[in-house]
Structure formats: structure tokens, C-alpha cells
Design a binder for these strands. Structure first.
Lengths: 349, 349
DNA sequence: GACGTTTTTGGGAGCGCTCCCAAAAGTTGG
DNA sequence: CCAACTTTTGGGAGCGCTCCCAAAAACGTC
């Protein structure tokens, strides 16, 4: 099927190129009868303007770039990512934007930077939370690329980002453990070069401080958001002479690893070790026992980031926005709480 | 930072626009000294040609579209998808192509089809395995969009695809169970409107037939590739008056659900029920007990699909190609095999 | 050193749109 | 019915490249 050009559509509708262009761009000054006629011809012929021609003339692409930093590549199979991407994707589609995906890998970071960013393939960029010191971020800022981060950044103040209440969520989770009588509570943190890792750890510390419980460095182990990491860290905690009675694990995926380590040590969750984690991925309600976990609205984070960026691109907002979405503690059986429902409920989207 | 145009780079290098273009496109007829001078200027100024201008003039975009059909949206959080995407993404990057992601959703299928496909945003399309009867596929074929499927399609013969030996892998897995003495073997299939679902089920049937074991319809339950689905199906199987001694589950994710159902029935894997599944996702080696599973090279499937498509676009190959990657049975503890290693090994990438 | 070849270079045209400005067509009121 | 507006339409210019063709430069040979 040969693709028509705007001129051919114009000829078929007996109007000028400009009028067809106005119809395509919803310009008001076209007579309704003419508009309908043009639309009918467009419809009949399945015409769609060429993206390249449009972009060249209008200096806009209607494409949003999604940058997945190198540090995320190893944990990319975590269901967190598909969920964010789904949120971003649907928010883009519904506003008429396309999504270009770019995963950074170490060996092509340089050339990528030029080819992807300078070639103006997209109007704005969403970057998934990365290492705090990721070198790409200062470059993006220097280039004044319209940018929204998923996950806040501690140093750059004038950026837009969408994040969840990592600290407060973690604090609530740990406070819940304290409320259940636990005093010797460990934590397996996320990578501490990521903001989410730091903030969830800080929430843990805050809950302990508020309860007057001293913070023991040997009870804080840095994990890496993988099952394997959660397994290893838990094994270390269980090997302590005085082992903890509860662990706050900074992600569900690590908590799955933690569960396995506890089982292999012939201990029981929650009787011997209570576990509370973070994310509420689909797997959380399905673990054995089902995980008490801090639900974060992952899909919404993605959708909100896309919305922010598009509003910024379309000048509906000017100033950088910071949006922090709330978390909620989903109580299931892994924490040993009385109020846990008998069966693991199905987690939200 | 103001972006320069090719004319400005040309002026700075004291050559013509055409010469700079030749340098950018690796045309051989440029004197080495001139080429170096131009490259230096390009480097110094961080110049990259505008994608839109280039595409308009050359009729090529250097973009590959990745189409995720509607039927995949619900199982998109399965780690299978990130892994395929990673394979596709890296294969594209390394060949200088960008990746545009499009997830179909029911409510915008129509408008999407026009906007995304006709606007020539990409040179070719990779489509993840979908329902056999997905209505988008005939449209793509009619439009002669360069296309590679991840997962074969039973009806369209002249398509390129990359798939794994689903049938043979399943046959091997079930044959292994038979070799362990099992005779009453059930299967939880994938959705039977997907080729992978059908082929894995056929492999199951073939193994039974080859061993002279009759096929019992009540032992074949259709699942949906989710944990929940695996759980439900397993619960049904366990409720049979004469319950199976082994189950071949068509995906690791469903097998996790199956494990839980078995545990909740106070039975043990593999003593009471042996389980063999398919995928070898990272979680398989981490389940309890670790899953015996058919490893499929997911990352390679993505990478191969991207490679095929690009070779086709660059006319290195003309005819449709069908590539079938091998699977291998990874024996762990869930099947009760003697040859199972004591600890679950870590799965491949 | 002039001539014929081959290699390298420059410039025009054109890709298919948008956007601006001016012209044409409508509309209103005296 | 015409002037004075307002709304609608058409066409030129230009977005920043690629590609083709012809001109210029470089190279060889006698």
C-alpha cells in the first residue's frame, strides 16, 4: 500500500495542503464541512503524516525517551520495571506520545550519549532512578533536556521527579514491627548509592530512634535488590551470635531470598523471624508466608512521571515539580501480626 | 547548548555540506586528512545530525519498533519480558538502531494502528508472541511492514520468527518424569490461544504417547502464565480423586503458584508431587525446592530477533528466516531426580 | 607539460511537513 | 449594495538532511 502525502490528500479533498495540515493539527479556523470532508478522505486512505517530515518542520517529535541507567540493567528483570514502564507507556499513548526505550550499557555510554540525545529523537526524557553519582545526569542537565526522574535525587534541586514516601513507608513498617514487640530488628537495605536504598534505611533508623532502640551497625546489611542478595544478607544475619527477631527487607524480591535463607536454617517465618518488606509486587501476596510489605504505587509512579513530562513539554507547567506518592502498609502473615488476614490477599496492580 | 547544523559544521571545517554528510555516512571517497578534520570538528562541537532531517531525506529512521500485543499486557510483569527486551535492546544498540516501544491496549488499538504504523516511526517491527488470532498481525502483513516475530505463528508461513524448541523441550521434560517412574502426569498449559501454550502441551502429549501412556483430558488444565493461574490449576489437580504424581507446568511463574498450592495441601514437592516447569527464569533456581525446568534462551531470542530484522532491513538477507533455538533441561530438586545437584545452581542470564 | 583517468568535492533538488502572511470568501451594518 | 470587518484558505519559504550529477583536483603517462 503506497503511502500518500499531504499534498495528495489535499488534491483529493479539493483543498490546499495548508487546510489538510490545519485539520491534522486541530486548528480551529477550518469550516466544519471542509473539515469533515478532509477527515473522510484521510480515513478512507488510511493517511497518517510522516513522523520525520512533521518533526523536521515543527521541531517536535511527540516521542518521549525512557532512559534506563546502567546500574539498573542487572535488576531489570525485577517486576518493578515492567510495571513502571507500563504506567509510562499508557500515559504516553493516551496523550499521543510514543515511547523510545534506551538501556545504557557500559561499553557504549559515550557514543550513546551523542547519538541518542543530540539527534533529537525525543522531546523529553524520563530517567529511571539510578545511582546517585550516575555521570549521565549532570550531562542531561547541562544540555537542558526536559527531564523527569522516577525516584528523587538528593543533590539536584531543580529537577522534576516522582517518588514514593520511601522513608515514611519504611518507618511505618519498622514501627509496626516494634509495635509487635520486636526490639532486635535488622534491615537489609537496597544499594546505598541509590536514593531509594538510603531513604528506606533512614526510615528504619528513624523508627528505631523514635522508639528509643539503639541502632546496631551489625544489624544493617547492604543488599542489591536481588533475591540472591537478600539470601546472602539474611544468612549473615542468622549467623550472628544474637540473631534478630525481625528483619525489614527493602524490597520484595530480596525478601523472597530472605525467606529461603530462613527456611534453610530450619527456622520459621514469622515465628522465629518476622519479615516486612517493600514494594508489594504481585509475588508478595504469593510468597509463603505471604509478605507483609509496604505497597508503593509503581504503575502510578510511571504514569505520573509521563504526565509531568508531557505537561511540561506542552507548557502547561513551567517550574520543576516534585511529586511524592503515598505508600501503605499491607499486613499479611510474614510479620506475625494478629491482624493479618488468614489468606494472602491479591496485591494491587 | 545550541545544536549546530551540518552546514555550520561544514563551514567550520571549510568543506561542503556534502563532504560532512559523506563523513557521517562513512562514504569511502573522502580524503583521510579531510575526514579527520571533519571528525575533529564534529567531536569538538558534539554535533549529531537531526534524526528527523535525516529520516526525511533518507527514508530510513534507524528505529525498530517493539510491539507488545494486548494479550501480553496482563503477563507483562513476568521476568520473561524484561529479558527479551534486554536482548532486543542490546542487539539494536550495538548496530546503531533505536528501540521504540509500543504496548497495545484495547481502547486505542485502532488509532494506534494508524498513528504508529503509518507514520513511519520505524523501519521494521518486532512483535512479541501474541494470540494466534491477534487481529493486528494480518494488518501488518498486508502493509508489508518488515516484521520479525518472537514466537512462531502457525498460520503465516512467510514470516520471519525466532522461537525456541517448545515442543521438544516439553517432551524432554515429561520424558524425564516418565524416566523417574511417573505414569500419572498432569500438565498445566499456557494459554492455548498462544503458540507457546499449544506447542508445550503437544510436547507433553508426545512424551506420553511415546511411552504408551494414555492421555487423560482431566490431567490437562489450561493456565494463563500467572502465579495465580498456576495456583488455581494445581488446586484443581490436587482435588482429583486420583491425583497425579507429577505435573509439567508450562512456565516457572505458574510453577511458583503450583508450589504454593502443593504446600498448602500439606504435600511435599517432590515427594508427593514432582514438578517440572519451563523457562528457567532467575526465580527457578531460587524457589523452594529449586525448580527442575526447561531452560530457554530468552535473552538470545530477543537478540536474535533484532539481528534478523536488521539484517533484513539492510538487505543482508532477503527471504523470511525461521530460527529455532534449543532448550535444555536443567535438573534441580523439584522433580525428585537422583541426579539433581544438592543446591540450586544459579540460572543463566 | 599536456592529456586522459580516477578520485574527491560542491551545489542543486527534494524529502513531506508546518507556519506565516497575504489573498479570498463570508458576514455585518448602514 | 458597498464598506469594513472577520473568518477561512492558499502558497511560499524553510526545517536539516541525503543523493545525484557535474565540476574540480589529483594522479599517471607519454
Amino acid at each position: 500500500m503506497t503511502t500518500l502525502t499531504i499534498e495528495e490528500i489535499a488534491a483529493l479533498a479539493s483543498v490546499s495542503r495548508s487546510t489538510v495540515s490545519r485539520v491534522l493539527n486541530n486548528h480551529p479556523s477550518v469550516r466544519p464541512t471542509v473539515r469533515d470532508r478532509v477527515l473522510r478522505i484521510i480515513e478512507e486512505h488510511g493517511y497518517a503524516p510522516r513522523a520525520a517530515a512533521r518533526s523536521l518542520a515543527s521541531q517536535r517529535t511527540n516521542v518521549i525517551g525512557l532512559l534506563i541507567p546502567r546500574s539498573a540493567a542487572t535488576i531489570f528483570t525485577d517486576p518493578f520495571f515492567p510495571q513502571v514502564i507500563q504506567g509510562i507507556s499508557e500515559a504516553c499513548s493516551s496523550r499521543g506520545y510514543f515511547l523510545m526505550l534506551s538501556m545504557l550499557t557500559a561499553d557504549m555510554e559515550q557514543s550513546f550519549y551523542h547519538r541518542f540525545l543530540r539527534s533529537r529523537h525525543f522531546d523529553g526524557l524520563i530517567m529511571l532512578s539510578s545511582d546517585i553519582d550516575d555521570p549521565i545526569l549532570p550531562l542531561l542537565i547541562k544540555d537542558r533536556t526536559p527531564l523527569v526522574l522516577v525516584g528523587r535525587h538528593p543533590y539536584f534541586q531543580h529537577l522534576s521527579w516522582v517518588d514514593v514516601e520511601n522513608r515514611e513507608g519504611a518507618r511505618t513498617a519498622v514501627a509496626h514491627l516494634i509495635g509487635l514487640g520486636h526490639r532486635r530488628i535488622a534491615t537489609i537495605t537496597g544499594p546505598l548509592q541509590m536514593a531509594a536504598g538510603i531513604n528506606r534505611r533512614d526510615g528504619y533508623k528513624q523508627a528505631l530512634l523514635e522508639a528509643g532502640i539503639p541502632i546496631m551497625p551489625e544489624l544493617m546489611i547492604e543488599g542489591d535488590f536481588t533475591q540472591e542478595g537478600g539470601y546472602q544478607a539474611t544468612a549473615k544475619l542468622l549467623a550472628l551470635t544474637e540473631r534478630p527477631t525481625a528483619i525489614f527487607v527493602a524490597s520484595d524480591t530480596m525478601a523472597i531470598g530472605a525467606l529461603r535463607a530462613v527456611i534453610e536454617a530450619n527456622l520459621t517465618v514469622p515465628r522465629d523471624i518476622a519479615i516486612v518488606s517493600f514494594d508489594d509486587l504481585p509475588i508478595a501476596s504469593f510468597a509463603n508466608p505471604p509478605l507483609t510489605t509496604v505497597r508503593q504505587p509503581v504503575y502510578e509512579m510511571g504514569a505520573t512521571a509521563a504526565r509531568l513530562l508531557i505537561e511540561h513539554l506542552e507548557h502547561q507547567i513551567q517550574e520543576p515539580q516534585q511529586i511524592c506518592l503515598p505508600t501503605s502498609l499491607i499486613i499479611r502473615r510474614s510479620c506475625g501480626s494478629n491482624s493479618a488476614p488468614a489468606a494472602g490477599e491479591k496485591g494491587g496492580r
